[in-house]
Design a protein around this nucleic acid. Structure first.
Lengths: 241, 241
DNA sequence: TGCTATCTGATAGCCCCACTATCTATGATG
DNA sequence: CATCATAGATAGTGGGGCTATCAGATAGCA
């Protein structure tokens, strides 16, 4: 109670979150943030929940790269109290698949040189799911996004990238398991959905960053020293394994 | 040699890639795509390279979510022939860190409740890098992005998420190793940078999708049946399909 | 009681981005 | 020769995420 439990006006809410007053009002208008409790026709008070919510919004926006519209839907799922946990998680998750909007229609309807790449990709996805024994459902947007990504790889001439998919799937499974265990260990039931959202979105950012860091290291070991002396002559092994 | 080695005009280029003629012109103006070779004052011919480049652009845009500006820089790095491999990779990679622009300044300059979270996050990042023995360099944007992500987690009340970072790092390392091995095995030297770009961006999309799929499975196992009576039992509610 | 800083709620505007439309002059094509 | 496609240029469009401005009301202090 000592901390910040007192109600504040919009000015201090702004100061405590680093979000400008007009922007806070904008979020309220957009339905991302509940309005303050009116204490008089032109005064409203905001509580700790508003601070948390604002931080959530900024995290999803800045770090997670979600759009305001996506955040609105995610938040609607978070706030709806009458929804079985499992369904909530599913619906929240469905909003967290970016990069997909235009991707599915994209080059697919072009005169297709690597024709049937959609079908091939879809098949590969089903293989992986089966191999891993994952339970999922048809039409899962994550699956569609994966199909789109594999298809894009194919069209860009990296169809063989599918070779390493098993490594990816194995890694993804381990990470997902760790995510869920973390949630089970640390999160109260009423915060479940919010935590899953946060973990999903920010977890992506975390993993991407780590992968970049690991790339630098791996690339350094593989290609780094080969051009130290004079020129690049070293063992790039462009073909053999 | 039936394939597509012949030069074509813009109309067919458009048909073969699914990108509209005005949009192709736009990409040329924006420096993403080299202009066609003029055969007369108002006729130009485009080659297979243009087709490939266009597909690359669409993949980065649609699946990778890069901006036109980012793609321009990436492509400049790809096209510059006089650059040591290692530097090229580094510079290309530096362009592939999204979600970071506003993130670093964000809530940091607010009156900070979990104060010093930036310093804590930075320390944690250095710990991980040291523990993994990764070689990197100060100011690596991937590191900064990771700091921002951890800081956002902290501010949203998930500081303990750092507990699972080791799992993430381990997974990222394995994936990165697989990426580099794939590149070494399959990619000719002159295509190295392009492949790294593609692999980095589309690899993110692939991993994210896989992680979502794995989440569904893990969440199903953990929370799926606990509310079975009368509600969504069985192998996950088949929403679509 | 007056004075000023702050607030609510509303409307309008801004800037960036990824295109898209339109136009002219020219040449390709059957 | 008639029609179509094209290059190159300029202008416009729609969406997204804010930002500016305003009127009228209140807070809080001298």
């Amino acid at each position: 109670m000592g901390k910040g439990e007192r109600a504040v006006r919009i000015g201090e809410l702004s100061r405590r979150t680093g979000v400008s007053v007009p922007t806070i009002k904008f979020y309220v208008r957009e339905g991302l943030l509940p309005a303050g409790r009116l204490t008089s026709p032109n005064q409203a008070s905001y509580e700790e929940a508003h601070v948390r919510r604002l931080r959530l919004i900024r995290a999803l926006l800045d770090v997670g790269g979600l759009s305001v519209a996506a955040i609105r839907e995610v938040i609607a799922a978070i706030d709806d109290p009458e929804r079985p946990v499992h369904k909530m998680l599913g619906e929240a998750a469905a909003r967290l698949v970016p990069r997909y909007e235009r991707a599915s229609g994209g080059a697919a309807r072009a005169e297709n040189p690597a024709e049937g790449s959609a079908a091939v990709a879809r098949e590969r996805v089903e293989e992986i799911i089966a191999a891993r024994g994952w339970r999922t459902y048809r039409g899962n947007p994550a699956g569609e996004a994966l199909v789109a990504a594999l298809q894009a790889l194919e069209e860009v001439g990296h169809g063989r990238f599918a070779e390493v998919l098993d490594v990816y799937a194995e890694a993804a499974e381990k990470v997902a398991r760790a995510d869920l265990e973390y949630v089970a260990r640390n999160v109260a039931r009423e915060d479940l959905v919010e935590s899953v959202v946060v973990g999903t979105v920010l977890g992506d950012a975390v993993f991407e960053s780590l992968r970049r860091l690991a790339h630098v290291d791996a690339s350094d070991r593989l290609f780094g020293r080969e051009e130290a002396p004079g020129e690049a002559t070293g063992p790039v092994a462009p073909d053999a394994g």
